[in-house]
Amino acid sequence: MLLWMSNIIDSKKTIDADEDIEFVLACHKGNTDAFEVLVERHQKKMFNIAFRMTGDYDEACDVTQEAFLSAYKSIKNFKAEAKFSTWLYRIVVNYSKNRLKQLSRSAKRREISLDDSGEMKTEWIINQSFINDANPGTQMERRERETQVQKCITSLDEEYKEVLVLRDIQGFSYEEIRDILKISEGTVKSRLSRARNALKDCLTKVIGDL
């Protein structure tokens, strides 16, 4: 009985803490405007997760759109056991992983994409983010460094990439990563440790002495 009560209280706490919940409930009634609010709130983070996972701007656009559409279709399945944002980020991570699998199947096309247009596109996007920097020399240096870092992230194994993106780029806690990826906290920590070491090795190779 006490356990049941505590479950209800915990669930209520989660709902109370989730600022998205009222819009989610409105979406249950078919209110698309409420969903627009949720898109507005989460589109940037969703898009950045997809971009860091795929390493490609256009792919990130497609993946994020698909993830949002999928979220809208299945929003009635959201049970408020976790935060809505956690549920939403899980969707975008899974869509990104699926897209990477599709791309790896067509390895040849991917190679061309990375070597030529894809890389150029990523570079261009990163360049755009430094366009307001005052010093052009610093701009160039940072731009180059960002491209190298992204290349190394893209080259990581999927399971290392996802924890690294969520923890070191998006700043999620271990608990949040556990909930998003549905893996144990210990697994999150061990994967993160390996991911950082792998990235360090990659960057040491690419940049030289860090």
Partner: peptide
């Protein structure tokens, strides 16, 4: 090295989605 790597990754700038992004999503929705 790990500390510098962490700093590099942590300092990666946020990428802005295209301006039409929300409209396109909502049109599909």
């Amino acid at each position: 090295q790990l500390s510098k790597t962490h700093a590099l990754v942590n300092n990666l700038a946020e990428v802005e989605p295209p301006a039409w992004f929300k409209q396109k999503i909502m049109a599909k929705v």
